[in-house]
């Protein structure tokens, strides 16, 4: 507990992975912006997808981790699992925000509108709201253990709810005509870039998680120390 806390030590352990991920990020940028062929119908704007789609996939992964962490926290009551779920929810919300904004930037030149109630877009927005509520209920709890319990309940309920939200929205939208996503054959080199970018962002997520979980555990430790001091006085 004492030694593993300094900034240098923390980045020492993960420095190899951090370096690798940084290199991958640069490579992914190069592949997405320069190497991948320009899409015939949409032009260069389509290159947004090489980062937009991996961010979306990693958000789903992050929210799945929230679900698992919440379940195990309620079962085992170990603070580590709560920290895992908390960290994953925060990262998931940051990533989902980027997914929504980049999707909107892509939609403007392609669909001609910033926003449309397309099923995927709408489902992602609702999911974003659910996990925003997850973070809010934690910060408005009267004490941290209570916040952890409430958040875990929402982490479980929210994850189970997302498929229902998606189903309802897909049914709803198929009743009304919506914009059609152009579906052409995908060039293999485009797929390669997409998967490379996905691997890059998955590793990035893992690294962010390591940092964020450690931050949460340090916060807990600080709270504990303060509490002990108060008891001692």
């Amino acid at each position: 507990m004492e030694k593993g806390l300094t900034v240098r030590d923390r980045f020492g352990g993960a420095s190899l992975l951090t370096g690798l991920n940084l290199a991958m990020m640069v490579a992914a940028l190069y592949l997405a912006l320069l190497w991948a062929p320009t899409e015939a119908e949409q032009g260069n704007v389509q290159r947004i997808f090489y980062f937009h789609v991996p961010l979306a996939w990693v958000s789903f992964l992050a929210f799945f981790v929230v679900f698992v962490g919440s379940l195990i926290y309620l079962w085992r009551r170990s603070r580590w699992w709560d920290a895992l779920a908390h960290a994953s929810a925060e990262i998931g919300v940051v990533f989902t925000t980027l997914v929504l904004v980049t999707g909107s930037i892509w939609a403007r030149p392609i669909w001609g509108v910033w926003w449309t109630w397309d099923p995927r877009l709408t489902t992602t927005t609702i999911m974003w709201l659910i996990y925003l509520a997850y973070l809010l209920v934690r910060s408005y709890a009267t004490e941290s253990s209570q916040g952890a319990r409430f958040a875990a309940v929402l982490g479980i309920v929210g994850f189970i709810d997302v498929p229902l939200v998606a189903l309802a929205i897909v049914w709803w939208r198929t009743l009304h005509p919506g914009p059609i996503i152009p579906q052409g054959g995908v060039d293999p080199s485009m797929l390669f870039v997409l998967f490379f970018s996905l691997a890059t962002f998955t590793l990035f997520y893992v690294l962010l998680m390591m940092g964020r979980v450690r931050l949460r555990l340090a916060q807990d430790r600080l709270e504990e120390l303060k509490y002990q001091r108060m008891q001692g006085d």
Binding site: L33, V45, I48, F51, V94, L98, F204, R212, R214, L215
Partner: peptide, 27 residues
């Protein structure tokens, strides 16, 4: 439409960089 591409990519990097920095500072 390079403007949109540029906007999307710079936004991703600014937000992610800011988030990493915020974790670092909080720690």
């Amino acid at each position: 439409n390079f403007v949109y591409l540029f906007a999307a990519y710079s936004l991703i990097w600014i937000v992610l960089f800011g988030y990493v920095l915020s974790i670092f500072w909080r720690q």
